[in-house]
Amino acid sequence: MTNLTSALYNIRLLDDLAKKNTPIHALHPLVKLLTTVIYLAVVMSFGRYEISNLLPFIFFPLFVTLFAELPLMPIVHRLLVVLPLIIGIGILNPIIDNHTVTILGANFSRGWITFLSLSIKCILSVTVGIILIATTGIDRLAVAMRMLKIPKIFVLQLLLTYRYITVLMEEFLRMSQAYSLRAPEQKGISKHNWGSFAGQLILRTFDRADRVYQAMLLRGFSMEYNVGRIEKANFKDFAYLTGWCLFFVIARIYNLSLFLDSLISGVVK
């Protein structure tokens, strides 16, 4: 039940963020989607032992977060929810791979390096995913999907699912509240009521689907999903895409951390 509430809150928050008016929000949705996918592909192409190489990639989410004026806490909160899963798998690395390496005079299991590398990748990927939706919003993302020739049926169905998640969650919330008020000692829904509890909901869901479909038909729906105006990508959009891609490629090929390191030590000398 707390899950339901926090999920609802999360969806609404991201929806609100997507309505902000910043240079990042104004970018073409397809450009943002492509940049994100390319970013992910580049970051994930690093091997298991890479750490320093990965660090410069933090600039992309950092810049976008700053210029899109996104609050940090919700992103951190999301990371805290998702990270334990990765840590669960990654923490086995130091145990399994016990080759030791010496760094700054101390002995480490090599597994720690892979573990750290994995965690960084996880943080980066989850962050850019959330940033994408928080600066674009699902409807504009749907426009981008249509431009990628993803069939109408799928996009329409995705939007409907999204729309009805909040409606159904509210309904579920009311029903589970009613249930827990009358079953104070239970942790969840007891097995005798699984079928009827969820089943009732599913039947209501079906009726609702019927009514929604009728409402669509009455307003002339004929399997065509009309998104309305689709803005054209302009110079800014191309500049954004090429600029970041250039950065990704450079950071993939050259170890920028190392470069920075030698630059600074060179200056110090």
Binding site: L156, Q157, L159, L160, T161, Y164, A209, Y213, M216
Partner: peptide, 11 residues
């Protein structure tokens, strides 16, 4: 089926 898929997905 389209609205059904959407609503069941949400379910």
């Amino acid at each position: 089926k389209i609205p059904m898929m959407g609503v069941l997905g949400a379910f």
